[in-house]
Every structure is written in C-alpha cells, then in structure tokens.
Computed example of a mutant assay.
Amino acid sequence: MTTDATGLAPDLPGLGGQDAGTVLVLRALGLGDALTAVPALRGVRRAWPGRRVLLAAPEEVGGWLRDLGLVDGVVPAQGLAPLAWVEESEAVSGAPPSGHVAVNLHGSGPQSHRVLLDTAPEHVVAFASREAGVAGPGWDPDEHEVDRWCRLVTAAGGACSREDLRLDPPASRGRHVVVHPGAASGSRRWPADRFAAVARDLAVAGHDLVVTGGPDERDLGARVVADATASLAEATGATGAVTDTAGTLDLPALADVVASARLVVCGDTGVAHLATAFGTPSVVLFGPTPPSAWGPAIDPERHVVLWHGGDGASARPGGQPDGYRGDPHAVTLDPALDRVTVDEVVAAARALLAVAPRRA
C-alpha cells in the first residue's frame, strides 16, 4: 500500500495531536481473539506513544492485558453492546474523553464501527464500510487474523508484525503437559473420550497431565480425567499423574500453566493462542476454520496443526490446504475435526515431547 508524505495510507484520515489524549480500541471478544490482536495493540502504542490506550473488552481478558502493560485501562464491553465509559477505579466521568482516536480491532463493520462512532471520536481507524460511512483499507476475508489487524494499524502509522505476538516465557519449563478439551462451540470440540485416550497414552509414557477448562467446563474436565485415570489402572510400571484443574484457574493462573508446560494439546481455542504467544509447543486440532486463518503465526517448528478440511493433509503451520470452511459456531462436531484421530494426535505429541526440554 502506498503512503503520502505523512507516512499514512491515503485512505485513512489524518491523525494529528499524538502527544496527549486517548486511544479507544474495540476488541470485545474472547481470549484467542484478544491474543491475535496483541501485535496490533503494540502498533497502537507506536502510532500514538503519548496517548492513553483504553481497551473495550471483557473485563477479565482486558484486565490481564492491562496488567501485562499492553494497554492502560479497560472499558468493560461484551460484543456489540453500547460502551459504558466507566473504567475501573479511574472512571472516565461517565462520558468519552473529547478528541479521542477510536480503533476498531473487532470486525469489518458496520455494527462494530457504529459502536465506536457513538463515542464521538475525532478520528476512526477501521476497515472501510460504506454503510457506516467509514473510510479505510479493504477487508480481506481470507487473511490471517494476526496479519489483518497488523495491516490496519500499520496503515495508520503503527508498525507491527507477527513477531509482536510474543509474550515473555518463564525461565524454565515444567514437567507437565496441558490437555484442554473445551471450546466455545460444539463444532470445535473434539470428543472427550478421544482427549482422554490421548491423556492416558501420555500418562502411561510417564508424563504428568494437567487438564484445563473454564468454569462451565468442569464436567467436561472431570469426564476426561475420570476416563483417563480409569484406564491407567491397567497399565504396568510408573505412570504420570493426571490432574483436573477445569474451572479452578483464573486467566493469569491459566496463562502460567500454559507458559510453563512442555506441551499443549487442544482444539482451535484461546489456549492454543496462549501456547503460541509463550512459545509452548502445541498440537492444535482444527475443524470448521482453516489454520491458515487462525493457526499459529510464529515458530512453526514448535507447533503441529492437525486439520482435514482441505485435501485431508495434516501439517505444521504454513501451506495447509484451504478449500473448506465449516460453521465455527455450530452445535455439532464439525466433520473435518471428527476426522482427526487419536493415533495422529498421540504421534504428534510424542514427536514434540521428544525434542522439548524437560526441566523441573
């Protein structure tokens, strides 16, 4: 994309007054969505280094990103609901600050654009939407989620890239393997008995397993642990422990468990993006959404993506076959995810564990 003398793309508004004021960023989505936007948030800092950056997002996710120093404050938000300008202990007097810049990292518009337009910003950085009357770069539906938001913010003067995904990892890895059987929708949730079979195999090999899940996934976690440990009784010799933490970890604690793990096995969900950010090796199972759009965007040697949505191939990130898109919000298991077998997940996990350091 060409730029004018200011260094800005000609289809974006001029962005003056960068030494003071506020930048309001909308990303009122879940953990995985938030993590894919981390490079763009860093780009926002670079574009407006003197401004206070507020993130409109769910409180837990936004608060965690604030504590990491990626933003300065949180405007609690869910989806496309109107924004309530009350920012924790530092309230914004019930009204948006004047002259602020609004950055839409939520969607292509027009609905999300209008959520920000209702705050009366001085400037809007967003993808073009004729319906909302907003100018900007064009939306590419096939673009990787990380690249999409980097392109938008870079066009506004805030250089950022996939490398900005990285979060500081722990000094050393633990002994445990994370198994995360949950996902927000049934179409992206591999069957619990298959996760249990993978957990059993790794425990028999002597690996300690930690099963994770959200508050509404306690029953799922308990079922995976019960099935895995029941079959462990038939194993001979020493086996690893299988620990159920589903529903017991807040987001910072979950991040610590993933960051210190030797391996993560999960579906296309937020935990996979935590593994990418912390450089934790992972086996990620994809179904309705192609990994070329949401898969690990850095360190391909650390991650194995299993997907049978194109020509049936399974591969490390990069060059995965496209040609299939299911419904990521459907209730029933996606056919592409259903074709992923226990044997191939176990094989991928063993291969990564064979090269992953095992430090206490």
Results as ranks from 00 to 15, higher is better:
D193G: 06
G247C: 11
R218I: 14
V284A: 12
H273Y: 07
A272Y: 03
L254E: 11
P281K: 11
L274N: 03
P252Q: 11
R223D: 12
G267N: 09
S292N: 14
S231W: 00
L285W: 03
R188I: 05
T236C: 03
T269A: 15
D227H: 12
G270P: 04
V179Q: 05
D268S: 12
G240S: 06
A192L: 13
P288S: 09
G213F: 12
G221C: 08
L263P: 01
P290M: 08
T236N: 07
L232A: 07
H273D: 08
L285I: 01
D250W: 10
T236V: 14
V179I: 15
A238L: 10
A184W: 07
H207F: 08
V224H: 06
L251V: 10
L263R: 00
L209W: 00
P252S: 10
V304P: 00
S292W: 04
T289I: 07
G213R: 09
W294S: 14
S187I: 06
S282P: 02
A183Q: 05
G270I: 01
G270Y: 07
T212E: 03
T248M: 10
G213M: 07
L274A: 06
A297S: 15
G206R: 09
A230T: 13
V178S: 03
I298E: 10
G206E: 06
L251I: 11
A238M: 03
H273Q: 13
T269Q: 02
T269K: 00
A196P: 01
F278R: 05
T289R: 08
L249M: 12
A255P: 06
G206F: 12
L251S: 11
A253D: 15
L254C: 11
A246N: 04
L232P: 00
W294T: 15
G267T: 08
A272P: 02
T248S: 15
A235S: 13
G214F: 13
G182L: 09
S187Y: 08
D219L: 12
A297Q: 10
D219T: 14
D219H: 07
S187T: 06
A183V: 04
L209G: 01
L274K: 05
T289K: 04
A246S: 15
E217H: 11
V204I: 14
G213V: 12
P281F: 13
E217D: 15
L202V: 01
A196E: 06
L220G: 02
R223N: 01
D244W: 09
V264E: 07
G221L: 11
L251A: 06
H303K: 10
P300Q: 07
A222K: 08
T289G: 05
V271E: 05
R200P: 01
H180C: 06
V271D: 04
A277E: 05
W294G: 00
R194W: 04
F286C: 09
G279N: 03
V225K: 01
D268Y: 10
A205H: 04
T276Y: 06
S185N: 13
L220Y: 08
A235N: 06
H273S: 05
T239G: 02
L249I: 00
T248L: 14
R200N: 02
A235W: 06
I298G: 05
